[in-house]
Structure formats: C-alpha cells, structure tokens
Simulated assay, not measured.
Amino acid sequence: MSATSNPFANTARPAKGAEVPDIKDDLLGHDLLVTGPTKPGLSSTFEAPHQPWPTHPLDTAVRIAIMGLHGGAGATTVATLLGTGATEVGQSWPVSQNAWTGSAWPIPVIAVARTDHTGLAAADRFIRSWANGHLTGSQLSTLVLIEAGPRTSDARKKATKRLLRMVPRGTHIPWMDSWLDAPPDPARLPGRIKRIIKLLNTPTP
C-alpha cells in the first residue's frame, strides 16, 4: 500500500522544515497574558468554596510545578511544552518541605484547566480556595485555560475572561486542531504559543 493510500497516514502534518503558521486568539486579542491580584486577600469578592482545594507535600523542590485542576486538563501538554524543569504534580496543591529546616519552599505553580464546564467549574473552585488563603507554602504563578473545542459559547468566553483576571497571571491557549493528530512538538509551534511558553518559563517574582 502506498503512503498516499494509507488511511492512517497523517497527510495534514506540515513537512519538516516548513514554516508553522501563527494563530490568533479571539479571546485575548494581541495580549499574551492578563493580570489580576498578585496574592490572596486582595479582593473581598471571592466566597470561599465549601471544600478547600486538596494539598500534598513534595519530597523535592522543583523549578515550576504544573498542576491539572481536573482530569484531562492538559497539564501534561503544558509540562511537555515548557521542557526541562517543569514538573507535573497531579491535581493537588504542591508544598515542598525543606529537608534541613522543615519550612516550606515556595514553588511557582502553573494551574491548568480546559474551557469546558468541568474545567471552568474546577478553575473557579481553585481560585476561590487560593483567594481565601487556603493554599499556602507555594506561589501561584499562572492560570492556563486551554480551549476545549473549535467553537465556544459567549457564556464560556465570559467565564474564561473572568477567571483569567482573578489570578496573578492568566493566559489562554486557543484550540489547536493539529494536537488531535499528534502530540505538540515544542520545536514546531505557532509563534503565539512559543511566546506564551517563554512567559510561562519566567515565573512571577
């Protein structure tokens, strides 16, 4: 069977060396990041959730912790794109204990969720836990909301924008249809995604 007649061949994948076209973001426009409260307690509008977000200790310090806020959030994808030093830590808030002093080592945490109803609800609960001071010992760096489909409703757009501005930094990754065919290749990304990854690799001070 020839390559052109093979139904499993990924004919849509760009040829090696071909330029990857850039993408636009209808949600954030030209902005790569939006900003909000730099630490908990700066806003009185976030009602605490009935169940605070779970936490867990880490045995070793990591450069950047990537935390999924629900199953299928995209934390593995974000960790892969960030490369060496980005560690996926599951769905609990990570706290690294210094083996010598017993004190917490503040890890920069990137929280990741999809923009479907499950992801937005999880992000809302997480942010309210953080804003009410329930998540200590580490530092929330960025909330990453990954588009869940090629089209989204006005209600979900509004919710996504609201959540991104409730944290120190928020960013949005548009729908990437090519990521359904194969895992994202860090060496072959649209310019916008490259710029976002560069910013994520620079945690907030």
Rank of each mutant, 00 (worst) to 15 (best):
W93D: 06
A61F: 00
A182E: 13
L200Y: 02
W175T: 06
L180H: 06
I64H: 01
K194M: 12
S141M: 02
I66D: 03
P21L: 12
P150T: 08
L69S: 07
L120A: 14
A121N: 09
Q51D: 12
D116E: 04
D124R: 11
G36T: 05
I64Q: 03
G149K: 02
I173W: 06
R156L: 11
A9K: 10
G72W: 01
I197S: 02
A122W: 00
A79E: 07
V144D: 05
P184D: 07
A99N: 10
D177I: 09
T38S: 13
A15M: 10
L189F: 01
L143W: 03
A73F: 00
A18E: 15
S141T: 11
I107D: 07
R114K: 09
T115V: 09
G41K: 05
D116R: 04
I146P: 03
T35Y: 07
P108K: 13
P168L: 11
K24N: 15
Q51T: 15
V62M: 03
G170P: 05
F8N: 13
R195E: 10
G72Q: 08
K161V: 13
S2C: 04
K194L: 11
T142G: 05
T136L: 10
L145H: 04
S96T: 15
S2L: 09
E19W: 00
T115C: 10
W175P: 04
E147Q: 15
I64G: 04
E88F: 01
T77H: 01
S2P: 11
L32E: 12
G17L: 06
S178H: 05
P183Q: 09
P168I: 13
L82D: 05
D31S: 15
A113H: 01
A65V: 07
A121Q: 11
P106M: 14
A15T: 11
T60D: 14
L163Q: 11
S138Y: 04
P205G: 13
P150W: 00
M176D: 04
A75E: 13
T45I: 12
P184I: 10
G41C: 08
N201Q: 14
A48S: 14
A187T: 10
N10L: 15
Q91S: 14
G41L: 10
L42S: 06
Q91C: 09
V167E: 06
A159R: 06
E19C: 05
K194P: 02
M166D: 13
R128C: 14
L135E: 07
G74W: 01
A3H: 08
D181V: 13
L180P: 00
P174Q: 08
R114I: 03
K16H: 06
G36H: 01
I66N: 02
G71N: 02
I107Y: 00
R195N: 09
I146D: 05
L33F: 11
L58Y: 03
H117R: 12
A159V: 02
V95K: 10
P205L: 14
G137M: 08
Q91G: 08
L199T: 09
D31A: 15
D116H: 06
L163S: 04
K194G: 07
S92H: 07
K161L: 15
D185G: 10
Q91T: 15
P94H: 09
R128P: 04
E47R: 13
R169T: 12
A131V: 11
P14D: 08
A75V: 05
